[in-house]
Design a protein around this nucleic acid. Sequence first.
RNA 1: GGAGAGAUGGCCGAGUGGUCGAAGGCGCAUGAUUGGAAAUCAUGUAUACGGUAACCCCGUAUCGAGGGUUCGAAUCCCUCUCUCUCCGCCA
Length: 425
Amino acid sequence: MLDPRLLRNDPEAVRDNLKRRGFSLDLGQWHRLEDERRTLQVEVEQLRNARNLRSRAIGQAKARGEDIAPLLDEVQSLGQALSSREVRLDEISSGLDKLLLGLPNLLDHEVPDGRDESANLELRRWREPVEPGFPVLDHADWGSRTGLLDGEAASRLSGARFTVLHGPLARLQRALIQFMLDLHVSEHGYREVYVPFLVNRETLEGTGQLPKFADDLFAVAGEHERFLIPTAEVPVTNLVRDQIIDVAALPLRYVAHTPCFRSEAGSYGRDTRGMIRQHQFEKVELVQVVRPAESAAALEALTSHAEAVLQRLGLPYRVMALCGGDTGFAAARTLDIEVWLPGQQRYREISSCSNCRDFQARRMSARWRNPETGRPELVHTLNGSGVAAGRALIAIIENGQQPDGSVRVPPVLVPYMGGLELISS
RNA sequence: GGAGAGAUGGCCGAGUGGUCGAAGGCGCAUGAUUGGAAAUCAUGUAUACGGUAACCCCGUAUCGAGGGUUCGAAUCCCUCUCUCUCCGCCA
């Protein structure tokens, strides 16, 4: 959520910033609601004050044994005027809330202009793609040839966009997850957390998936409204909801492995081959909660932690600064890491690292006590994949492929594979 | 799933219709005392929103959440959520 005060004080600046995303803010509507809210709130509060004063007087008169009938008459009319305005104020307020909850975050100044991913800016590369000198099967072909990746079985079980992994490939995914968790915990200073995969509406509003993006989520039928998490960012970031965090505890760095569930509504026909885009996938997620002054540096650090995973695995990648039009709802600035996939002859997103500044914190009411002011102030939150296990698996299959069709296990994963160095079937 | 108890400020804990934003204690902050500290004493110590340019001041709201009754609700009624105890079931 944006700071309502900023919207009040400098609406044009907000509108212009959001325009860089291709989002058009209707300032007229905003002003109509806001003006009426202000007037109504002043009136309601004055009426309540009048009522409270009289009610108190009634209590005192009663205590003295005086006749309270005249006072009761006086307060009667107040009540009616009050309740009609209260009803109206509620309507206006919920209209404003709805509008406010639907506004994306402001973009950082350094975010490049542009309307879609073609305008994203490449910041750096690690290891140029090399020509393997033999035809590399893409992961889907390799998977069906080896029988280790079974889309047909998955579709019988669940439908499209699910995968069954077999044998050493299933183990390789587990190895990847273990390796990534260990790396972030032991070398990057993250605390491992295990969190629920089903969350309520408030939690999803806190991180910004709701109310706007309900179509992307799986809702679970049952007595209570629950949703499958689309990313661990949701439960992990919400750990600080309604908290006032001691300054000594900051920065908080959490790492969690969870499955992620996405309905992928609106992406019909895209990436239907293989396991690039699934309804269910595994991911290791990094979340940081930091003091506002430190969030820009924290984004660089968090991104480098995700990069370290790919470097240890020996996978070529590049880092992209997303342009305004490609930056997600809650993010002020996002850096994507794209891994090279020889089977597709292109880079594909494997991690997305975002600084959400105080956008999620305001929705969640996540604060810290600033020793300089002595007052609770909003924290900044960041998140990033470190990294998506399913896509890392694809990258290993395609980058580690040998001329004979086997796949070389990255050396750092060999211990996690019980010493297995080559996967062939 | 069955039976019962409960949810109050950073924490503990009073409060069953009328200056209750809420006694008291702990903790914390500042000051006094001290060579310094402990102890003691004094004062202060929630958040949000609005009136405002303002962390002074004034108002409104907040005692798990949402409704209701009432001139007036932490206190009464309804619904929901959560926690605890016992029984059952279960990985």
